[in-house]
Amino acid sequence: MKTIVKAIAMAAAVLVAQGAHAQDKKFTVAYIAPSLDIDYWQWVAHGVQQKAKELGMDYVEYTSENSPAKQMDNARVAVTRGVNAIVIGPVSSTSTPPLLNYLAQQKVPIAFAGIGPQPGETKFTSSVTANNYETGLAQGKYTCELAKERGGSEVGMLSLPQDRENAQKYLKGAQEAFNANGCQLVQMLETKGLTINEAVTQANDLLTAHPKVKAIYGMYDQAGTGAAKALATRGLKGKIGVTVADGSPTTIQLLKDGAIQGIFFQEAVGQGMDATEQVYKALKGEKTTQNMALVMPLVKAADIDSEDAKKVIARVFPQ
C-alpha cells in the first residue's frame, strides 16, 4: 500500500513539474506518424522538427503503427504530457473524426500533413496535402507525352492500392489526362507490399502482357524504381518512358541516369514545415489557412541541377 501511495505521489510530482514547464511559454509540438516504415513519414517528421526548432518549439514524436486505436492513444498521451499543438499524418482519413472531437475539447490545435481529414470535418487548424487530382492530371499528361514521343499511345500504371483516397484521386486525374491527350491506360497493377521487388515483378508482368506499352506511370517511389529496373534488364532503358510520384534519392539518381524521365515531387519536408507553421500561428492567435493543397512540382532530367529543382528537393527529403 505504501509503495502505491509513493508511486502516485511521484507521478503527481512529475505531472506538476511538466505543467510548470509548460507555463514558461515554450510551446511543444507533437508529430504523430502513421508508421515509420515508410521514408515519407520520416521526412515529414524532419520538416516538423526543423520548423519547430526555427520557431523555438520543443518537438516530440509518436508512431501509430497503422492502428487508429494507437493513434488515439498517442493523441491522449501527447495532451496529457502537456503538448500544445499536434501535427499528424493520420492512419487514414476515416480515422480522424473522434480524434478531432477530442482535440477540439482539449483546445489543442492540429494540422494534417500528407493525408487530410475526413471530408466535411472542420474542427482542425490546417490540412497540408498534395493535390493528388491536379498531380494525377499533370503526371498523366506528361506520361502520355512520353508515350507519344516513343511512337505509341498505350500506357501502363503501377498504382498504390486503390482503396486509398489519394490513389483514387491520382487515378481520376490521370485517366482524364490520358483521355484528353489520346492515350489508353491498358493495365493498372496495384501494389500490396510497397516494395521495389514487387514493383519489378509487376512491371515485368505488365510488359509481358502488353508489349506495346510505351510509358509507365509510377504512382509511388518504389514503382518508379521497380519499373526502371525491369526496363534496364530488358534493355529498354529510355525506350519506354517512366514517370514517378514522390521522389527520393534513389529515383533522383535514376532520373540523372536517364532511367526515369520525370519525378513529381511530393514535398514531404515542406508539408511538415507548413503544417508546423500553421499550428504555431494558431497558438499565437494569428490567421491560419485551413486547406493547403500543394500541387506536386515536376522535375525533368534536364532540369535536375537547376536552382529551382534544388529548392524543390530541399522541401522533399532531408539533405
Binding site: G193, I196, N197, V200, Q222, T250
Partner: peptide, 16 residues
C-alpha cells in the same frame, strides 16, 4: 540475392 537483383535494400522487403 534480392539486393543483388534490385540493387536496393528495403526494411520491409521480406515482410510478405
Amino acid at each position: 540475392l534480392t539486393v543483388s537483383y534490385i540493387l536496393n535494400a528495403e526494411a520491409t522487403a521480406g515482410a510478405s
